[in-house]
Amino acid sequence: MSADCGPAADAVTRGLGFDCHDVSPVISVRPPWDLANWTMPLLEVLVIGGAVFALVHAIRRYRAGDPVNLALWFASLVYLLVIEPPLYFPEWFGLDRIYGFIFAHNRFTVQFMGDRLPLYIVAFYSMFTQLAYEIVRSLGVFRRGALLGAVAVALVCQVFYEVFDQIGPPLRWWAWNPDNVVVNHPALASVPMTSMLLFASVSMAAMTYLVVRLAGNGWLVPRILLAGVLTPLAMVIAGIPSSVFRDNTTAQAWVLGIELALVWLAGGWVIASTPRTSDEPVSAFARYYPAVYLGVMAVCWLSALGMAPVGSGLYALACFLGAGLVLAALYRVRSRAPATA
């Protein structure tokens, strides 16, 4: 048995329907109709198409004199390269004895790194940071400063990400290792609470803050690299309160729950208290893509009714409602603001 496919990885991947010993070490490509279910190619089209749409929009913004969108798009890839390999291959970094095997993705159309990293995940980071930033920018929040803008991004990321995060396991997009008590517990239904807080809100908000503060005139590439590399440090800091109670999952759940509640309260206050100006341009990406994303997620949820293990339906519903309210605020701004391409 290879080091990259230990007993835990073998059990999780077999549960998804494939053998982690039988993988291509660099890249694998398979027909979309051979995937585990029809929602998987739909997800790939949604995310990869969104990343391309976001890149086109970012280039337009850059040519118009605003480098933030383009810097954020590429900083997301830097962050991906920093954070993903240790999650997929903890044994490469000497972390297997500390964190153990965490989760595995199912097989998608295009996969990298021994079938651990789907192409749509590479695209997801750049698409998702752009989705949240564009919504918050269009609402005029960043005019109040980078910090308040990042707080709003934390909430927008939470409500849009969790409708995806909670539905992944029942549709077999990925599977968590249930025996990993260090990382995957406590959990809300089938989703680890650390994922909900650190990945869904803290990382994206910290990256956006860093990019907004660092991007500007001058050498853009070093600023992009710095933002992507520093983002995981924010996750470490945000994870300290719950780590104090490492041997008490109940206490950890309370701490993580309080931090999530703060994301909702602080982000909601920032968005609600921001004046709705009429001169902030609303891009085509902000006008259309977030609504399409939510629509596809809704279809996926309807297709998964009755499946198990399912994420928290109540929390996902709250996130759908929160995302809907954010979009309603955006469209009120759009009705008064000049539209851009």
Rank of each mutant, 00 (worst) to 15 (best):
V110F: 00
D179I: 04
M193Y: 04
V182D: 08
Y99W: 07
Y99V: 14
C157R: 03
R172D: 15
I98A: 12
V159P: 03
F108N: 08
E91N: 11
F124G: 07
Q166W: 11
M127P: 00
L95G: 08
V182E: 04
F101S: 04
C157E: 07
T194K: 10
V183P: 06
F89I: 09
P85V: 11
L117I: 08
A132C: 10
V181M: 13
E91H: 14
T129H: 15
P118A: 04
G114T: 08
P186S: 07
N184Y: 09
E91Y: 02
V163I: 15
V151T: 08
Q130H: 13
P186D: 12
A123S: 09
F124A: 09
G145A: 06
P86C: 12
T129Q: 14
P170I: 05
E134P: 03
A146L: 01
V159Q: 10
R144F: 14
A132H: 13
L117N: 00
W173A: 12
T194R: 15
P170K: 02
F164V: 10
D179V: 10
G100A: 03
P85D: 09
P169E: 14
R116V: 03
I98W: 02
S138Y: 04
G140N: 09
F112R: 01
F128G: 03
P86V: 15
A132Y: 05
W92N: 13
Q130C: 11
D165H: 03
V153L: 09
A187V: 05
Y161W: 13
N106V: 12
F101L: 00
V156P: 08
D115W: 03
V153M: 07
A123H: 01
I83E: 02
G168E: 14
A146I: 02
Y120R: 10
L87A: 06
E134M: 01
A152G: 09
F142R: 01
H105G: 01
L147A: 10
V122Y: 06
I121E: 12
D179P: 00
T109P: 02
V122W: 10
A123G: 04
A123Y: 00
L95V: 12
E91L: 04
A189P: 00
D115M: 00
V153W: 10
P186E: 11
E134Y: 00
L188E: 12
W176S: 02
P90H: 05
F142N: 04
F164G: 14
V136G: 06
W176L: 07
V136S: 07
W176C: 08
P170N: 04
L87M: 05
F164W: 14
V181G: 01
A104Y: 13
Q158P: 06
G114L: 01
G149K: 07
A187W: 06
G114H: 07
V182I: 14
D179L: 05
Y99G: 14
M193W: 03
D165T: 04
Q158D: 12
V163K: 03
E162Q: 06
H105M: 15
D179A: 12
S126E: 06
F93Y: 11
L155W: 10
P86N: 07
P118W: 05
V151R: 06
F112C: 06
P90D: 10
L147F: 12
G140D: 14
V159W: 02
P169R: 02
F101T: 11
Y99R: 11
G145S: 08
Y88K: 11
V181D: 15
V122N: 09
H105F: 15
F160I: 03
S195R: 08
A132P: 13
V182C: 09
I135H: 10
P90Q: 13
P169I: 00
D96L: 06
D96M: 01
Y120M: 07
R107H: 01
